[in-house]
Design a binder for these strands. Structure first.
Lengths: 332, 332
DNA sequence: CTGAAAGCGCTTACAG
DNA sequence: CTGAAAGCGCTTACAG
């Protein structure tokens, strides 16, 4: 039916093995190589990757399992991973778990069936807990979210430190009642919460934390309840970009002045944070670098499988913008 | 090495064929089925998809070729496609062309080598032009951007009509000098430009159009030149979400009041358009529906390969927000 | 319903 | 450098 390596071989007057060697840049005389290349052009031959993968036993495939590609953090991460992969002549299989452990487990199984070369993985909390009992036939690099220590390579940012930076910044601006709204599905949110509590305590302030599903809607609803309550906080911290968006949207619909009535800060320098209202103060994560580093760790691991697992901790960067500015009653 | 169908067969005391039938839900007695399933669980067997694809000659794979997944339009499109694909137990291979025809051609070749079941494709202008001379071994559904008529199925929105809606709306708000900033790489931008020119002309106005690379930066720079010029337009239309963002960012950094000094409107209801400044007036595209429809067309085409190509034209929806509001000098 | 056999399209030792 | 042969791990006619 579709034309194969044998057809090319026949057209070039060589054996299939020689065609294969030309394709794989193996040792072939210039003479035959030319004939084969001509035959390939003439026939329009395209190798069958399934056959190649089966026979050669390497798939040159990277798995990428994240919660939702529509979260700008993961959108950017996936582009960084894909760019690195395609440079290495590998492809990537992208999977969205939607923070659903059942979907996550299914995709992990799929990764096995694809016989992927390696996995870059942002586990849900359930997934992260399950890691201890699982073993994979390929190296795994955790990104954004960590798992059991010294089981897999990982690349994360210093979350507690980033939270502390946010709290200290708001404190320096005169805020004392600083609340925190955190996601309830990732280890990252846990760490950010921990850093927040530690920083508040260190300052002699009392932490007020709430947890929600990490979506714009859930965050907006929780914020509405919170901000309508009797004693509104002076400032709110959001543990990721989606939650921050929900927070801001509610503040806006409630007609609150930011930062006058309420200061806002959070994680992820999503594009809208720069152009909205007074600009939102955020911790910018080096997303592209996280992606590139994860790929680099994967390649090194493939070379040296026995190396002890490494944890790369990158730093977030505070971007001070209007949303955390000095409140009117202090300036006026 | 890794455990295969033969190992399962041996463990269950059946032939490999029977194991295969259990896997594929073929006709197997309840008795043997149970034994095989037990053996699968016991051995932790996972089928090898490369082998299965090679042997069965169908890959159950959808190719998705778009310009850049970081464009929220394509982010949402890809989620819709992936959800539909996984429901049909198919996987998807995502490729970003970055509007680069060479990359695009490479990915199209890759799709052939993957022996994909079908392709969902938003071609660059070059790619769209090349379509006439190409033939594929799989059905192709064009999305967002169209190609040569009656060559492939396609699903698009009514772009000229959407542009006209935008122009009429701005006109109704009192604007006369309405400029348009369009992308220079897609057929979609061409159509939007065409509709813009037609609508302006119909109103007896003179079109002022400029073209840029469809990126935030290029749009912002062009807007800076344009708005700093002697006779600033009263309103500007952007042909997609990235260009609109560039426009808004520049208006903001120039200290222009929107809509007082400059009305703004454009395409794509990206999340930031709702919460920024006065809110941006946009044509919302039914992105998820575009994705689902594309998948539906693909499946129908797979069933009836000889059917005449269909073009599905969906409608954009005007979302009126503050950025196109009545200018101050008309109200005051 | 079940099994033995062939074969999907390649790559890779093995000889020469 | 080159070719004949085996085989990657499955599925699928073909018999029974």
């Amino acid at each position: 039916m579709t034309i194969g390596i044998k057809d090319v071989a026949r057209a070039a007057g060589v054996s299939p093995a020689t065609v294969s060697r030309v394709l794989g840049n193996g040792p072939v005389s210039a003479d035959l190589r030319e004939k084969v290349e001509a035959a390939i052009r003439a026939t329009g031959y395209r190798p069958n990757l399934s056959a190649r993968r089966l026979r050669s036993q390497h798939t040159r495939t990277i798995g990428l399992v994240v919660s939702d590609i529509r979260n700008p953090f993961f959108t950017a991460l996936s582009r960084a991973v894909e760019d690195a992969a395609y440079k290495a002549e590998m492809r990537v299989i992208l999977c969205n778990t939607d923070e659903n452990p059942a979907r996550e487990a299914m995709y992990l199984r799929l990764m096995q069936e694809e016989r992927i070369t390696g996995l870059i993985y942002a586990p849900t909390r359930a997934g992260s807990d399950a890691l201890e009992g699982l073993s994979f036939d390929f190296p795994v690099v955790l990104v954004d979210r960590s798992g059991p220590p010294s089981l897999h390579d990982s690349v994360v940012i210093d979350n507690p430190e980033a939270s502390r930076t946010l709290v200290d910044h708001l404190f320096a601006g005169g805020r004392r009642r600083i609340g925190g709204l955190f996601g309830n599905t990732s280890s990252t949110a846990v760490e950010r919460h921990r850093g927040y509590v530690a920083a508040m305590t260190a300052l002699g302030l009392v932490p007020e934390a709430r947890f929600v599903a990490p979506t714009v809607e859930a965050a907006a609803e929780e914020a509405a309840r919170w901000l309508a309550g009797p004693d509104r906080p002076e400032a709110l911290i959001a543990s990721n970009g989606l939650i921050l968006l929900g927070l801001y949207r509610t503040a806006r619909s409630l007609g609150l002045d930011v930062p006058g009535d309420l200061a806002l800060a959070g994680f992820d320098a999503d594009v809208w944070t720069e152009i909205v209202g007074p600009g939102l103060t955020v911790i910018e994560q080096p997303v592209a670098e996280i992606g590139r580093t994860a790929m680099a760790l994967l390649f090194e691991r493939l070379e040296l499988p026995e190396m002890a697992p490494r944890k790369i901790v990158l730093a977030g960067r505070l971007l001070v913008r209007g949303s955390s500015g000095t409140p009117a009653d202090l300036t006026g």
